[in-house]
Amino acid sequence: MRNKFAELIYKNGKKNNDIYLIAADISPAGSIKKFREEHPERFINVGVAEQVMIGISAGLAMRGKKPFAYTIAAFSLYRPFEMIRDDLCYQNLPVTIVGMGAGTIYSNLGGTHMTQEDISIAKSIPNMKIISPADSLELESSINYCLKNKKGPIYLRIGKSGEKNFTKESKQKWIFGKIRNIVNGNKIAIITYGPIIKLAFEVKKKFKNKSNNFSIYSCHTLKPLDKDGIKKILKKYKYVIILEDHSEINSLCSDIKNIAFDNRNKTKILSFSLKDKFFHTYENQEDMLNLHGISVEKIFNKMISLK
């Protein structure tokens, strides 16, 4: 997804002189290098200085430019939090904050590099929009939306490397603010977002001949949340599974449970979110997710125990 992001910035930046990339010392992967070489005046590396990255983006947006503030998710959101709140959200300026390698993707780099609670934090600020594409295809649609966006900041939460294009077969178009059906079944709905969609497909596959029972939804827009879309899903399916690479606090799972409660919905909801805990495991993301209770095996076992 990181390379796709670079490619999209390069492609769009070529024809649109208003696009600026404000990076905080992140390696110029893929086409970012080309963008920098061809448009040095619109590629600003502020260095390890995330607060000024956001402030500069705010100033550019005040003058009608299209800035993308870009670095690793943990540093793009946590370090300059007050700048995001005051400069971008309070002033309602159209800046895209790109959080790369979000969730547990950077597990082997430790807790300082992970974002277990980024959506929760971003969601709490008025005027903020949040998009988390599942793959490169959704990323392209997301970037197109960000380029058209005229009001308010967007937190664009993206993955890092070579995710498969899981949403390729979807019959529904990507529309900002609308939950999207990726594969269609009739008994169980898995609602997820971001690159962890991969696990949803693996769980589905494990059910072999019963896998046609599964729907998979990409809830790519986390704020504003498609409440009506979710209401319909809660009505339609007997079981709803929520799978996310994010803390259980102020998450998609808590939002969906709120919607179910408000609508007196009786659907059985199972959620797989990150625990409210820091774990110290460094081998890979799979291990980290496993400690949080998320694995294909665990999801599968819990599902077969359903009645």
């Binding site: 000024v52 500069i56 100033g59 005040m62 800035p67 700048m83 002033q91």
Partner: peptide
Amino acid sequence: RGNPGINASTGSLGHGLAMATGIALAE
């Protein structure tokens, strides 16, 4: 920001110079 003649919402200190940097780049 948005009030007549006011270009930036400040109050928390240490924000204005970075925003001015972005404006200076654009200008």
